[in-house]
Simulated assay, not measured.
Amino acid sequence: MSAYRAEGEYKRDSRYITDRITADGRDGWPVEPGRYRLVVSRACPWASRAIIVRRLLGLEDVLSMGVCGPTHDERSWTFDLDPGGRDPVLGIERLQEAYFKRFPGYDKGITVPAIVDIPSGQVVTNDFAQLTLDLSTEWGVDSPLYPPAQRDEIDEVMQLVYRDVNNGVYRAGFAGSQEAYEAAYDRLFARLDWLSQRLSRQRYLVGDTITEADVRLFTTLVRFDAVYHGHFKCNRSKLSEMPVLWAYARDLFQTPGFGDTVDFDHIKQHYYLVHRDINPSGIVPAGPDLSGWQEPHGRG
């Protein structure tokens, strides 16, 4: 994550590598099974989107995945979960190496998710928003996640979710002033109330099946009680105290590809150990009780 603060308000650094891997290879990166490696961390909500979409689309055999550890330093995510601290396919210790291989002296965020070209060892893209949409539309799968007839509505909902919820929790957590914090807090919970009303009438955000919009909301909701409620001061209500959203989140969590890709230990370690400006002690909370995620959701 790369960010800066202006007049107390958190601003996300959105300078990404926007090359795309497409069926026709128009950016110079054609879809080829086995050629690319998706690099993620299970701690990161943006990377978690890609993990879930890859699983839901059945792309595991054509797009391999490297998993970084839950923490990083100011330089880069590292492959400390792998033997010898190196990714077994790319042969690198730090994701930074793939960025520098393509752009020596790269001075923007070394972020996950990223897709790396295995033959050259170069990063292709870290544009997390476009990356998952391209998995649905360019990789030759019959994807229900981004159906053409509903894309305008999906895009509209995703924009609101990103602005007020996905990024909204960060705007609250990293606010540099009381005013900026309260503005982000109010906007976040107003949007969560709006989402609760929407989901009280329908099982999923758009249409009657899971779409990309649900994936994007889920990765914030699943971190809410474990991290954002306390660590980011988003504490009007826990997720488990918002009945509609709590049932909706459990519905998704219990769907293959969602909850079975979540690692709560990695999530808590990342936020509480890396964000020392917010949590100087580095103490990782023992709670909350996460057993409720498997309780019946009643949204069948």
Rank of each mutant, 00 (worst) to 15 (best):
Y4C: 12
R5I: 15
R5A: 13
A6K: 15
E7H: 14
Y10L: 14
D13W: 04
I17W: 04
V31R: 00
P33E: 12
P33R: 10
G34H: 11
Y36P: 06
L38K: 05
S48R: 09
R49N: 11
G58R: 03
E60A: 15
W77R: 02
F79A: 11
D82T: 10
Q96M: 10
K101I: 00
G105L: 02
Y106M: 05
K108V: 03
V116I: 15
D117V: 07
T125L: 03
L131T: 03
L133R: 15
D134H: 11
T137C: 09
T137Q: 13
G140D: 08
G140P: 08
P147G: 11
P148C: 05
A149G: 08
V165T: 07
N167C: 05
G168V: 04
A172R: 14
Q178T: 14
A180V: 09
E182W: 15
A183H: 12
A184P: 06
A190N: 14
L192G: 11
D193M: 01
R198L: 15
V206H: 05
G207S: 07
F218T: 06
S237E: 12
S237R: 14
K238I: 00
M242S: 09
W246F: 09
A249E: 00
F253T: 05
T255E: 14
F264C: 03
H266V: 01
V274L: 13
I283T: 14
P285C: 06
P288A: 09
S291P: 06
